[in-house]
Amino acid sequence: MSDLKQELKEKIIEQLNLEDVAVEEIGDNDALFGDGLGLDSIDALELIVMLDKDYGIKLSDPKEGRKIFESVEVMANYISEHRTK
């Protein structure tokens, strides 16, 4: 599980071009959107594609994404439960 979280943090940084953010700076329970990491709706769409491509999870409604992407912890739990690859 902690491997998955580490992997997710790396992917978030790479995928969303967060050049000035280090893996250590993202806490497992930090908010990714809003006041936390400051991600926005376009980032949410990027992450939805990542779920599909890397973990075989398809979301049809962007609103679902918002809940899943609350924090790395929540994301990791969701992925472990639903991943198909």
């Binding site: 769409l45 990027e46 594609v49 599909d52």
Partner: peptide, 9 residues
């Protein structure tokens, strides 16, 4: 497949 919105925008 697996296209992301950033470059489109």
């Amino acid at each position: 497949e697996f296209l992301t919105p950033t470059s489109f925008i």
